[in-house]
Amino acid sequence: MPNLQKSPFEVTILAIESSCDDTSAAIFQNGRILSNVVASQAVHKLYGGVVPEVASRAHQENIVPTVDAAFQKAGVQKQDIDAIAFTLGPGLMGSLAVGVGFAKAFALSLNVPMIEVNHMHAHVLAHFAEDPKPPFPFLCLTVSGGHTQIVLVENALKMSILGETLDDAAGEAFDKTGKLLGLDYPAGPAIDRLATQGKVRFDFPEPQIPNLNFSFSGLKTSVLYFLKKEMAQNPYFISENLADICASVQDRIIRILIKKLKKAAKQTGIRHIAIAGGVSANTGLRKTLELTGQIEGWTTYVPRFEYCTDNAAMIAIAGYFKFLNREFAAHDVAPMARMAF
């Protein structure tokens, strides 16, 4: 059985993340991430997205080598592991099942406890991978291809959603408007790059959504109307104005996000503001957050890119907090594609 008498500082955790595209394994020890290995599935580049069958197969291929690499990089032995943390959900069922199955087998063979982790909680807790770490309570805007949430983080185990998207995620808004512009899907990084070369010249309407929720589906539609009108007059409109359109779309998405974040900060009185998730890699969002923080008197937190996208380090951290609270998973635990926050 696990040595629960160990000081919290001596705990060693192996974490597995396999909810979506990437297989990842990380080793956490003494409050530090010793390794965080992500097997990026180049095969997906050919397909342009998350393809479930390809994803679960690739996870099967990658999981053992990825875990081996994590151990090697960390310089830790398998016997040193006190617990294994894994992503229970949300995610693609076939992909999650690979990680959950692996975690069970590993935990049984080493006779150590398992810790189930909610992927969305882990994104928030990625901020504890490195300094500076936000103090509790803080607000976290989690933005990715599948999610857009403002989370009130009271402590590592207690967090709640203050607002979320009613339709499309912010990342999806990037990807789909990019598609309308003829960019390859997913188009987020390309829009970010083009936006830096363009000027904000076109105004897209702001969605009128009450409270702290978001909507990005209307933006996509207004970009579509706009392009149709302009293209009817000038068939080269997109190619002649691509950078400016990208800058304008990106500016609108960012302003929608920041406006709600400001509202949440005002409502809660919290001034420690963090962003997480794949879209927090967007340079425009990072800059705007920093600027807004200076004006509003916030302390802002943006994790390094490797902790923004899906990774096992964040699963390890979330697992560690649960370990301290002795929250372990039963052996009949099963992955959950849709999971309550």
Partner: peptide, 21 residues
């Protein structure tokens, strides 16, 4: 979304582009 609203589903519909289902 409006279809689900008609049936009073417990959760409002969101885009499944990322989640697929």
């Amino acid at each position: 979304r409006v279809f689900c609203h008609h049936f009073k589903t417990k959760q409002a519909a969101q885009s499944p582009t990322f989640s697929l289902i």
